[in-house]
Amino acid sequence: MEWFFYAVALPFALLFLASAAYALYWAAKNGQLKEFEKNAASIFDDEEPVGEQTDYFPGRRPANETRR
């Protein structure tokens, strides 16, 4: 009976893989995978820009901080 298991399982596994591959292809084609890095920067703005730490212990700052 073991061949039966493989006869059923293999096509299913292939089908599953194929659908996953197709889903990825579809997502890529429709631009779902674009602009990722832009999203990463969406939490920053002019006032709290990239490159500026926003949290400190009260009254404790690095000595070389010149920004403020």
Binding site: F36, A40, I43, E48, Q53, D55
Partner: peptide
């Protein structure tokens, strides 16, 4: 995912990985 980059002032290393 919010506070780590926000506090550091540095975008998350790879947005793709986070998704």
């Amino acid at each position: 995912y919010y506070f780590l980059p926000k506090v550091l002032g540095k975008p998350i290393h790879s947005y793709y990985l986070s998704v």
